[in-house]
Amino acid sequence: MKIRRVVFNFHLYIGLAAGLFLVLSGLTGSMIVFREEIEALLHPELMEAAVNGERVPLQTVLNAVSQAYPDDTVFSVRMPRTPKQTYLLKMNEPHGLFVYADPYNGELLGAHRQEDTFIGWVALLHTELLIGERGKTILGVSALLLICMSITGFFLWWPPNGKGIGKFARGFKVGWSAPWKKVIFDLHRASGAYTIVFLMIIAFTGVSLVFNKTMVELTNFLTASVPRPVPPHSDPLGAAGMIPPLDDLLHQADSILSGPTTWINLPQTPRAPLVVRKKMPEEFHPNGRSFIYFDQYTGEVLRIENASAAPSGTRVYNLFYPLHIGVVGGTFTRILQVIIGFSPLVLFVTGYIMWRNRTKARAYKPGCFIN
Rank of each mutant, 00 (worst) to 15 (best):
T350C: 08
L125P: 09
W121V: 03
D247A: 01
R358G: 03
L108W: 01
I32D: 03
E39K: 13
S234P: 03
I339S: 07
T86P: 00
G135A: 00
Q296R: 12
G162C: 01
V61L: 11
D102T: 03
N306R: 13
I340A: 14
G192T: 03
Q114Y: 10
P260A: 06
A123G: 02
R78K: 15
W121H: 12
K213E: 14
G175E: 08
T219I: 11
K213F: 10
V226E: 14
V316F: 14
R228Y: 09
F332Q: 09
K182M: 12
W157C: 04
A193T: 13
I131N: 10
A224V: 12
E39A: 11
I38F: 12
L145D: 03
I353F: 02
L156A: 07
F332W: 11
E107K: 15
L266F: 13
W263M: 10
V183P: 01
V77P: 04
M200A: 15
A143D: 01
G330T: 05
V275P: 01
F8R: 10
H11Y: 06
Y321K: 02
F168Q: 05
P270K: 05
A68G: 04
V316L: 14
V338K: 00
I339P: 01
E305V: 07
P179A: 12
V275K: 09
G241D: 14
L88Y: 10
W355T: 12
V197W: 09
F294E: 10
K163W: 04
L125T: 06
Q67P: 00
K167C: 06
I131R: 14
T82V: 00
L199D: 04
F348C: 05
K136Q: 14
E300A: 14
F10P: 00
R277A: 09
D247M: 03
V6M: 05
F211S: 07
